[in-house]
Design a protein around this nucleic acid. Structure first.
Length: 493
RNA sequence: GGCCCAUUGGUCAAGUGGUUAAGACAUCGCCCUUUCACGGCGGUAACAGGGGUUCGAAUCCCCUAUGGGUCACCA
């Protein structure tokens, strides 16, 4: 419940426990971030644990992606596979025997049992339920196997799994710091598998064992785990372990309302970065999806996030990931960059656009920076510097500037000799020359500047005005483009 | 379908029984201006619906609707 959370008196330990899929969802990133923020808020520890109990899903290099992504996002863990810690190993496949030991203990206690049913039988169970609306639950075929039968099966090396025996009656409740108290009927709980036939634990078992063994005080995870949490609590109770504080997070949705997914083409964190978003901006944006500081502040550094973060501010309702707002926020970060830094980032995109070396790229950067929201938009904005597009002369007509094809032609013709004579070629001198010309001709400066800008760019909108573009393009190219403009207009007018 | 969760403008959201229901993005208009962007000012726009409880409900309760999650030898 909101407002009920008290600062813990023990040291806070949170964990991020991704499975190595080679891909960092935005939702996963936020889960990691909130876990990190919560731990750091209370000067606690943030732990990275790899959940690789599904051998079939092993992806080469996926763990490195996790390390890299967290580093990029500025989320630093205190313990993890690559840096060690007092509670290792931090990779679940390396903890295999641990889980088996505890599963056996559960069998002793009578809250778990061997199951020798093969997949075929389990399948048939499902089929028999199809069409009807009955809950698909294991039928407990193996629950009452005699000790002799079990031993015989074991001796024969018959494959087995270990299942958790759910109570038949009663209810199980737990309190989530975000969602409040949730109660379910035990009769609805399935005898879930704890240990798989390959000897590996399921997530459902491993997370409980590891969270306990690693001293996790706050379990921060997506709310897709809300409905299985009662089963975990039953496990904690069976072991007599303290139940951690649960912090379930609302989902992040795509604009059409479903969960974000790679399949549907939603960008991952690394996708966003390669699209030209700044990691800090993405982290900042994601922090605000499902959490509010309670103030109107929107731009946060990581330290400020740590300071401001609180469980009370976490929203229960799912949030839609809005690219437009991310883009705006990225623009805020881009504009705050020192010019050198901006230039460094932008260089790659200049290259992609094919910008020639003899253009003053730093000048381009200084024009571009205040107008850039996302880096990958750069090539399209500056393409005209590389090659004058084959533009339509209707561009010369601009109502507010009071220009049309006729006076544009006249004015370009007037501009040409003046600029040809100009020796000192820079923005100020060009601007001065052009406005002076306008004065002499008795026209508004826009009537000179607009056609020049159009002639130089062939575009309706450009970073920088006429004189700035002329400076960057250089005298020769500028005169060349003005002549092209005159030609174009001559042909049509 | 069962169970669980959610529902404030197009989007993110503040709000915890009495507010002219904040703010941001987007959108629209105006100003600034060497085009565009930035910046400044302003506008449009919301408590899903219905019942209660209460002197008074966005806030509490119930029902309905809608959306989502979950029901694997995946995590």
């Amino acid at each position: 419940m909101k407002g009920e959370y008290q600062m813990p008196d023990t040291i806070v330990r949170t964990r991020f426990a991704p499975s190595p899929t080679g891909y960092m969802h935005i939702g996963n990133l936020r889960t990691a971030l909130y876990g990190y923020l919560l731990a750091k808020k209370y000067n606690g520890k943030f732990i990275l644990r790899i959940e690789d109990t599904d051998q079939d899903r092993y992806v080469e290099g996926a763990v490195d992606v996790i390390y890299k992504t967290l580093a990029l996002a500025g989320i630093k863990y205190d313990e993890g596979p690559d840096i060690g810690g007092d509670y290792g190993p931090y990779v679940q496949s390396e903890r295999k025997e641990i889980y088996m030991k505890y599963a056996l203990e559960l069998i002793e206690k009578g809250v778990a049992y061997y199951c020798f049913c093969d997949k075929k039988r389990l399948e048939s169970l499902k089929v028999s339920h199809e069409g009807s609306e009955a809950v698909l639950k294991y039928d407990r075929y193996c629950l009452n196997l005699s000790k002799k039968e079990i031993e015989k099966n074991l001796a024969e090396k018959k494959p087995f799994v270990i299942r958790q025996k759910m109570p038949d009656t009663g209810t199980t409740s737990f309190t989530d710091t975000v969602y409040g108290t949730i109660t379910v009927n035990n009769s609805e709980l399935d005898d879930q598998i704890l240990i798989k036939s390959d000897g590996m634990p399921t997530y459902n078992f491993a997370n409980v064992i590891d969270d306990h063994l690693m001293g996790i005080t706050h379990v921060v995870r997506g709310n897709e785990y809300l409905s299985s949490t009662p089963k975990y609590n039953l496990l904690y109770e069976a072991f007599g372990w303290e139940i951690p504080t649960y912090v379930h997070l609302p989902l992040i949705l795509r604009p059409t309302g479903q969960k974000l997914s790679k399949r549907a083409g939603d960008p991952s964190f690394e996708d966003l970065i390669s699209m030209g978003y700044l990691p800090e901006a993405v982290v900042n944006y994601v922090a605000l999806l499902g959490w509010s500081p309670g103030t109107n502040q929107e731009i946060f550094s990581m330290d400020e996030l740590i300071e401001a973060f609180s469980i009370e501010g976490i929203n229960k309702a799912p949030a839609v990931f809005d690219m437009a707002k991310l883009t705006w926020m990225n623009g805020e970060y881009v504009r705050k960059l020192p010019l050198e830094k901006f230039h460094e980032f932008a260089l790659k995109y200049y290259k992609d656009a094919g910008l020639s070396e003899n253009i003053d790229l730093v000048k381009v950067s200084s024009l571009l920076q205040p107008r850039t929201e996302v880096f990958n938009a750069i090539p399209e904005i500056i393409d005209f510097l590389v090659k004058l597009p084959d533009y339509d002369i209707s561009l010369y007509t601009h109502k507010k500037m009071k220009t049309n094809e006729v006076n544009s032609l006249e004015n370009l013709k007037a501009v040409l000799p003046v600029l040809e004579k100009l020796e000192d070629w820079n923005n100020d001198t060009i601007y001065g020359t052009l406005t002076k010309l306008a004065e002499q001709l008795g026209v508004k400066s826009g009537q000179i500047l607009w056609p020049v800008r159009v002639a130089l760019s062939g575009k309706a909108a450009t970073p920088g005005g006429a004189s700035e573009l002329a400076e960057i393009l250089g005298k020769d190219e500028t005169l060349k483009r003005i002549r092209i403009g005159i030609e174009k207009l001559n042909k049509e007018v």
